[in-house]
Write a protein that binds this DNA or RNA. Sequence first.
DNA 1: TTGTATGCGTTATCAA
DNA 2: TTGATAACGCATACAA
Lengths: 349, 349
Amino acid sequence: MNRAAMSRAKAGRPRPASVKDVASRAGVSVGTVSNVLNRPDRVSEATRQRVEQAMAELGFIRNESARQLRAGKSRSLAYVMLDASNPFFTDVAMGIEDAAARASMSTFLCHSGGDAARERTQLQLLEQQRVQGILITPVDPGSAVIDEIRARGTHVVIVDRTRQGDTICSVSVDDELGGRLAVEHLIDRGHRRVAFVGGPHSIGQVRDRWAGASEAWRAAGLPEDDLVRLDTERLSVDEGRVAGQRIAGLSTRRRPTAAFCANDLLALGLLQQAVTTGRRVPDDLAIIGYDDIEFAAAAAVPLTSVRQPRQQLGETAARLILDETDNPDHQHESVVFTPELVARRSTLG
Amino acid sequence: MNRAAMSRAKAGRPRPASVKDVASRAGVSVGTVSNVLNRPDRVSEATRQRVEQAMAELGFIRNESARQLRAGKSRSLAYVMLDASNPFFTDVAMGIEDAAARASMSTFLCHSGGDAARERTQLQLLEQQRVQGILITPVDPGSAVIDEIRARGTHVVIVDRTRQGDTICSVSVDDELGGRLAVEHLIDRGHRRVAFVGGPHSIGQVRDRWAGASEAWRAAGLPEDDLVRLDTERLSVDEGRVAGQRIAGLSTRRRPTAAFCANDLLALGLLQQAVTTGRRVPDDLAIIGYDDIEFAAAAAVPLTSVRQPRQQLGETAARLILDETDNPDHQHESVVFTPELVARRSTLG
DNA sequence: TTGTATGCGTTATCAA
DNA sequence: TTGATAACGCATACAA
């Protein structure tokens, strides 16, 4: 029983074939095997075939750790998602993965679940992996951890969030514009008393959408008090239901005729609460969401929503980080996409 | 200008500090630094502190590739998702990640999107990373690639699918039972003409749910023709809408009073199509889905669905693969969970 | 308690 | 065209 077989019997896991094994089987040196892998042109046809045959027979698989150790850097990116259960982020992730794959980079997907401690752990792991770059939708875009990582040499691009200054690449969507579009649409449809449902306002997104909303409201010359801010604890379906109850509890005089929700999850919760308590959407309450996730269009009353170019967001983020790693003259860029209103029955009737 | 600074100026990326750098800064040998990291008890308090200080000052981050190369194996798992846009799979993924993190393993998330070629690429990448184990919801559970990977020494656990024989670990849910539960529920509610919406039937899941459905139908002594099979191209919201149109197009005599959909996406699409064309759910058409994703409960008419223990599925899969890697006496196990009917308004009225 | 030396698998340099 | 060898960063066996 040879050494490999012994270790197999003991550990139950055969030691994978290395270039050395391939070399000895093909009767060549390791350098030649490496050349077959990396510069096949430098190798004669005959030896190349022998080496390739040996690789096939042994089931040779390149050891990425060793390559990476030797190269001093990896060939992989990572995306740290804020919330994997929100289809918005999975779409962004797919955009990133596609673009990375085209550049023959592999992508690690992680998610923080909005938990700063977990985020830190994930980032630490990724740094240990020496990933080329980290794409992240951070719990707190201002966090110092991000700068520390960059100071240690790992490139970072912020996704769907922004940061003051031009010291870091980011891709985001103009949330103020999105908020404006939503509220202008409601005003156009004749609504003069509107609720803004969203929170916590510590989230930049929520703040910006609210800012856009109130700006549109002011610009239309409507009384400030008639744009009612309903704060939520999270951007979830549950909280949307709660908001629905709160709206229902308002006196007829104070009750809004339309609600603009800071994301689609809230809107779906609100929609459900409204419909199941017998209110008609949009006649009794018009609803507009944000993100235009697939389920927005799939709702019983298809949801008007503000669409963000999700896939494109991901692709651009990947492009930016690849430029940052490859291009010595890289300039940091903050790409801001333009959202688009998708009007459906929940506001059109 | 020293070497590190030069490379920094040229590449824009500082070379990360290594154990050697830490050692020289702390005035000790690399062995001691390594001991501080791995067996701190063997090191005197004073030197330990000096080393730790040096690490902090240099921003030392362990190089996982080097550790892995040395150790001969990695400390990471991977889950290859079939469809990242289906909340069911993201929930499974979170279960896996949690369990892995508890065992201080990191998890790579990938997704094949149902594309066999892409799946192969992902698996190749993961093999190159020498991950300890691969959890996968395969495009084709019978595929030989899986066996090849295992033959080369990487452990594999199949998630939410099964395979003949006991040669591989798997976790799944009893889909036949799920199908039975759904149809029994509809029969209990008085339905005597029911549609089964799902496809393609090349998916084991779909087959099993259909099998359970027809078994329940037969067991109730109902005429075979009155359980109508409506095949779909995919398990998507779109296809659910199409199915809705097909149901609406049937003559009153042949039209089912209830539909059992092979997953919630189909059910949501069907629900929407029904509601927007003025049919009442469940009075005109009762609907039951499968998976009980969050959006099932959030639908305008909350959806009755067959719930699968998603998180638990993931946790168990992680447990199995950890056992397979750690325990020399590991026995392959096929864990089958029991689904549960969650009755809501879409069938109760 | 600490230091020295070796090897993991790969790639690149240099010599043959 | 091919072969021998050093180096990447870390962990360990062994020596001091």
